[in-house]
Amino acid sequence: MSAQLAIEAVGLVKTFGATRAVDGVDLAVPRGAVYGVLGPNGAGKTTTIRMLATLLRPDAGSAKVLGRDVVAQADEVRSLVSLTGQLASVDEDLTGRENLVLLARLLGFTRADAKARADELLEAFGLADAAGRQVKNFSGGMRRRLDIAASIVVTPELMFLDEPTTGLDPRSRNQVWDIVRALVAQGTTVLLCTQYLDEADQLAERIAVIDRGRVIAEGTPAQLKASVGQGALHVRLLDADRRDEAEQLLARALDAQVHLEPDPARLTVPVTDAGRATGAIAELSAAGIELADFALGQPSLDEVFLALTGHPAEETVDEEEAA
């Protein structure tokens, strides 16, 4: 069975001082698809990736990447994988082209072939115009694209992508997603770490949810979402005094526990099916309870966490998004 798996990790542990950053992670990642590792900041995603990419030695447990042991056969692993780290793993002082030529030369391309390969990648990633500029003058999206280009100077069998879209605008994010899809279409397996459920949902065939150094849930995006409900109905009343009435009505109509928000006019109800949610809205207006607005939202990472762990994702997630 192991020959079929791109990554097979058993009981990985890494401690830093008193902190167990990774506390017994098991992963079974099939070949040829995107596998999402979802979790908030500090959950142990990056540490896990760094062990799998041979940058850190596990304190306990073992892992095989493409059938090779990450400790005993580290060099073989390195020749089959690429890493696009959370920090841009390119040299900011060099130009885009120089970065790619440097990596191509290190991988054994001749001088001429390295230049040709760099230009081919720059062109494909929409970076040809900026090729002669120092990377420190690149926008966030361009830098990310260069970073990914740098990882496919030689197409890897497996690529580690650590939060590839954190801090990117939606447009750049979509571009990165398209590139990831192209990679998978060419047969590369991608291990994608992300703190966005939406991203894992868009790209991943399977997802492992990780929290405090442990895998707390694993499955397809559909299975995960089913386990936490399809989403939530957010309602804001015109008249806050009628919230109790609205609460009872919604609880009955949707057969779910209504959450009262700090804002006295707001309520949130988990829903499993959009049709019933529209029915409930109709019932509210039939009862004469007027709405300022309402929205049907996908479950957020926070809601997934709340459902799976009983505690919200760490606050740092919000800080990261705001930054």
Partner: peptide, 15 residues
């Protein structure tokens, strides 16, 4: 072009 760049990558002999 991303597709063709991925397809055309071959691994040379390590230096």
């Amino acid at each position: 072009e991303v597709y063709s760049a991925l397809a055309s990558a071959r691994r040379p002999k390590p230096p």
